[in-house]
């Protein structure tokens, strides 16, 4: 009985986990290059809004509308992160303040544009978002097939692929070595002829692209339209996953799955006798409580990029 329930939870848990993982990977790129990005939430909002709007507008003409929507979400995320990059890299802004500003901005811009485009406080609802799929062949694998390959959103496979790509880029290529050096010791990187500002732009824009994608994924799988509540703190959970996953792509994957399941649990709790009595708010709180506990647990071990959040002044030697 319980086993089937857990299996049933998989698609929904993976649906929630996907945007968390993707956005957290975005945070990883940004912080590894040395720029703290607490605007993941805001960028997800913008990405989600863009994806939903494009889907609504193109739906009548093409079945590919949601996928085009995702691409536009990525573009919108990049545009948004460009502001963060410019402020924190060129104008030496405090990165947390700049991120906060973007989070406020996102709420304003998306609803402002909704009013201009759709004349209401939200986008119109789309009829089809991204569709679930069953992977032929793989779905026949006992247990694993049921867990990961039957009636799942393909966005989860995108998330996993991105984890692998990120790991490869960050740990195996010259690009990754250079990017990490910018996040740890930008003066050292610069003295070796690496363009610190350029690497950081790449890091921040990658975070914009991924968080924008995450926002689109979230709205097009878990929602029927973009509203101011569509993202409801998922960007901050992504940030938490980054910390929880210790700035490592596989750690991020594990943390994202963990938070995905804890969200799914809040939906299924009423069917599980010993959890049914707990209020749903309890489950909403869980990821945040776990993150604080994790932070205490990791306390004293410096695991994040050393120079992340510091203003880099090329004049300082």
């Amino acid at each position: 009985m319980k086993a089937t329930l857990i299996l049933e939870m998989f698609p929904i848990a993976l649906m929630f986990a996907s945007p968390i993982i993707i956005a957290a990977l975005g945070g990883l790129f940004s912080e590894r290059s040395g720029i703290v990005n607490i605007a993941l939430e805001g960028i997800m909002m913008v990405g989600g809004f863009a994806a939903a709007s494009v889907t609504v507008l193109l739906e009548p003409s093409t079945p590919l509308a949601p996928w085009i929507g995702l691409l536009v979400g990525i573009a919108a995320g990049i545009a948004m992160s460009l502001l963060h990059a410019f402020a924190s890299i060129n104008l030496k802004a405090n990165q947390v303040i700049s991120g906060t500003a973007l989070n406020i901005l996102a709420g304003g811009v998306t609803i402002y544009l909704s009013q201009i485009i759709f004349h209401q406080q939200r986008t119109r609802s789309f009829s089809n978002g991204i569709q679930k799929m069953t992977v032929p062949g793989l779905s026949k694998i006992p247990l694993l097939g049921k867990m990961f390959f039957i009636e799942n959103y393909p966005t989860f496979y995108i998330a996993v692929a991105l984890v692998l790509i990120t790991w490869f880029l960050v740990y195996k290529t010259p690009f990754g070595l250079r990017m990490r050096s910018c996040g740890e010791h930008p003066q050292a990187a610069a003295s070796m002829g690496i363009n610190v500002a350029g690497m950081r732009y790449i890091g921040v824009l990658a975070s914009g692209a991924l968080a924008g994608l995450a926002g689109g994924v979230m709205v097009l799988t878990a929602d029927i339209q973009y509203t101011i509540m569509s993202i409801h703190g998922t960007g901050f959970i992504a940030l938490a996953s980054l910390v929880f996953g210790r700035w490592n792509p596989f750690g991020v994957l594990a943390a994202g799955l963990f938070f995905g399941f804890s969200t799914a649990l809040s939906f299924y709790a009423k069917d599980i006798t010993f959890l049914a009595k707990l209020p749903s708010e309890f489950f909403y709180m869980l990821p945040y409580i776990f993150t604080i506990v994790a932070l205490i647990f990791f306390a004293g071990k410096s695991v994040g990029p050393k120079a992340a959040g510091e203003i880099y002044d090329s004049g300082k030697r």
Partner: peptide, 27 residues
């Protein structure tokens, strides 16, 4: 005078930084 070394990189990684020998796309 103040060393410009990345503390959690290896000696080799610090030395090759910016001029990495490659095999395909991999260092």
């Amino acid at each position: 005078q103040h060393f410009k070394l990345v503390h959690n990189f290896t000696v080799t990684e610090n030395i090759i930084l910016g001029m990495e020998p490659r095999k395909g796309p991999i260092i």
